[in-house]
């Protein structure tokens, strides 16, 4: 196990690795940011269609998923604090809770999308093809942006899963936690994107 004096046999730069993670996050911000601009412009050009189309989305469902993601962000933040304090057990527990919350989010999304699919509303369907221009734009953007966000949820789950495994193995610990910290940053990014997706698609009218 760890000795109290820190022996630096391997080169390691946590600040740089975190900066690298941030650089990657910037590309993600600009990716989703670009799509938010596309959404805003089309909304500005098709206000009536977007207003009617948005009423198809369930606000309670979106609200529940928002709260789930917010809680999961807090549990990740707690897991990072606890690994720094050397409380491995709490770290593991918090990461397991986070992964379960992420799974719940995806299950909710499955039902939300599933209900749309049952009504024949899915990308490439006849119903979508026959929608008015504005409606089609709204639902295409809805499926694309929430879909891409869901992909990010899955990637985040993989990153947190690997971190969890390494915490259990003792490879991530109180003096070496950059992996968990960076995975946490990614998870917060996923939360950050949803913070804007929720009002834009579900609430604004």
């Amino acid at each position: 196990m760890e000795t109290t004096t820190h022996h630096e046999d391997l080169h390691r730069d946590d600040t740089a690795s975190k900066l690298g993670m941030w650089l990657f996050i910037f590309t993600e911000i600009l990716l989703f940011g670009g799509m938010f601009i596309v959404y805003s412009v089309y909304r500005y050009k098709n206000p009536v269609a977007f207003h009617i189309a948005h009423e198809e989305l369930s606000i309670p469902m979106g609200f529940i998923n928002t709260v789930i993601l917010l809680i999961s962000s807090a549990t990740v933040a707690i897991s990072i604090s606890s690994i720094q304090k050397g409380d491995r057990k709490l770290t593991i527990r918090m990461l397991v809770v986070t992964l379960l919350l992420a799974l719940t989010f995806l299950i909710n999304k499955y039902f939300e999308w599933g209900a749309k699919f049952e009504h024949g509303m899915y990308p490439g369907s006849d119903l979508m093809a026959n929608l008015s221009h504005g409606d089609m734009l709204f639902f295409s953007l809805y499926f694309f942006m929430t879909g891409l966000h869901a992909v990010h949820i899955i990637v985040g789950m993989i990153l947190l899963g690997v971190s969890l495994y390494k915490v259990q193995k003792g490879l991530v610990h109180s003096t070496r936690f950059a992996l968990l910290e960076n995975s946490g940053l990614y998870w917060h990014l996923v939360d950050l994107i949803w913070i804007f997706l929720f009002p834009l698609f579900y609430l604004i009218h």
Partner: peptide, 28 residues
Amino acid sequence: NHHISSYKDHLLVLLILIFLTVITVAIT
């Protein structure tokens, strides 16, 4: 001297975020 956020702070931040979400839903 790395800063470690307390669990209480994280929970407080979470409550603020949920509160703001409720406000958004109410306003819209």
